[in-house]
Nucleic acid binder design. Sequence first.
DNA 1: AACTCGTACAACCGCGCTGGT
DNA 2: TACCAGCGCGGTTGTACGAGT
Length: 267
Amino acid sequence: MGRSPCCEKAHTNKGAWTKEEDDRLIAYIKAHGEGCWRSLPKAAGLLRCGKSCRLRWINYLRPDLKRGNFTEEEDELIIKLHSLLGNKWSLIAGRLPGRTDNEIKNYWNTHIKRKLINRGIDPVTHRSLNEVGSQSDSSPVTTPNSTTTTISFSAPIKIPKKEEILGIKDEKFDQNMREKWIERCPDLNLDLRISPPYQQNNNTDNIKTGTRICFTCSLGLESSQDCNCSQNMVGCSTTSNNGGSICYDFLGLRTNGALDYRSLEMK
DNA sequence: AACTCGTACAACCGCGCTGGT
DNA sequence: TACCAGCGCGGTTGTACGAGT
């Protein structure tokens, strides 16, 4: 038995919305607010499916929508967010005030994909097109202070062996890890870099005490109007060892694209 | 002027998740 | 615990429109 349809399709309009339908929907939502989309069409006198009403409102009629072209800043933000989140359009849209997931998805498919290809970047993996196919390992990257491992969900991955991690050979451990890895890592198109807690100055204390992180600054957009840093918010450009404002590189976007996954908060 | 093709974007569809019972 | 309704998301399709021939 299949899922019952969301509405009586025989008695609903489809296709482009008319001005009158828009007006009815706007008037109804202004009077009663959003919610209960299933019953909304009938209550508003619309011959539309509830899902269709919701989509029309969210993607087109909402008063807080920012219409018009995407700015260069928005382009770059979308690219950065996509490299972290993959096709999670609603999450990306959540970081772009006034933009909808549908709008961003369309814009990605029509503009940004091509833009990245022109730059020689693969829009799926965000790696150089020259690298794609040749670089598929997840070799640990060692810095003077830490070791990080890049995990690619979108390309063939090399599952680390116990020997490589701890210097101890253990075939059973390796097989077990392979199974868990495959089970836990669906094809999400996320390039996550797992590393020890990001250590810079006193920011572990900041995390403990609940200090907020400025997402805008973390994306390197501290000059943006969306930046609303205050003194107790980390993320700004000033770095200090003696109690001044502290730079916490949220998502690690400013440096090398490394992601401290513990800081990635989903809505 | 008529036709074809490519592009942009609005809208639809199906599925998964979540909360209520 | 199982089931169901409703919602939200991501992928896909449909269509309007402009450019090129």
